[in-house]
Amino acid sequence: MGVATLFAVSIIIFSSMELLPGDFGQAILGQAATEDTVAAFRRELGLDQPAIVRYGQWLTAVLQGDLGTSFSGRNASGVDRSREVVDLVAPRLRNTLFLASMAALFAIPLSLVLGISTALYRNSVYDRSISMTTLTAISFPEFFVAYILILFLSSLSSVFPSLANVDADTQFGERVYRVALPALTLTLVIVAHMMRMTRAAIINLLASPYIQMARLSGASPTEVILKHALPNAWAPIATVIAFNLAYLVVGVVVVEVVFVYPGIGQLMVDAVARRDIPVVQGCALIFAMTYILLNLIADIIGIVTNPRLLYPK
């Protein structure tokens, strides 16, 4: 299933090249480009061959780790200063993963604890205030959260830097310090979502008749949670986490732009603005793969914890 989806996704991403308007060669190379250079450029992209053949070539190349060549750096004179997409993407992917894992490290435990505890003390003052806060928080655009944090923690008090400019030589400690604000922004945004979904999943579970049955038979609240609810909760919780990590991947794009962090999200946004299709394709493929992979893992966790599938009739 996951493979089939990936395959379908790769076709969609590949077709993005097909949908380009006819005169884009001119657009990329500039008005001064002669017909010859444009034709050579089209030939280089293989646009003179049938789509199926090109898809095959593209897919094999991608599987070998070759994402093609960037459009930028080309000009009308035919001099080619363009770079391989892989070289552009690889270091930035590392930065993005670093930022995302920082955020996930704080967000997952925090939101699970909040989600489960609010579900248990449903309708208490504690639950209501947390729910109110998170409902407000999920309504905020990411950049709003980011700029509020900048205003208070950077502009007014200079606790953290407002620009997260790191490079390959930055030391680990320094790196953590510099990504503190973007990571904090992501954590806040994710926790609100994840906590609400965890709460809903747990409440849903607690309402099922067998949990009532366990309560009737005199099990203590802790026992109800640990022995009766939790074994059935792995699947929904895994889904919630996967869904939100996937959301994190998307949220990263905006946050990287705000903090000028050299990650893959910013690369993609720049490429979109320049209409540098090979780079856009490469980034989209990476985002889509992460997203599908995370959902796949959640499905697998759901399967291995379901007795119906583990012990068939």
Binding site: P209, Y210, Q212, M213, A214, H228, P231, N232, P307, R308
Partner: peptide
């Protein structure tokens, strides 16, 4: 069917 815990 609904009242027994499916996991035990």
């Amino acid at each position: 069917r609904l009242r027994l815990n499916p996991a035990h």
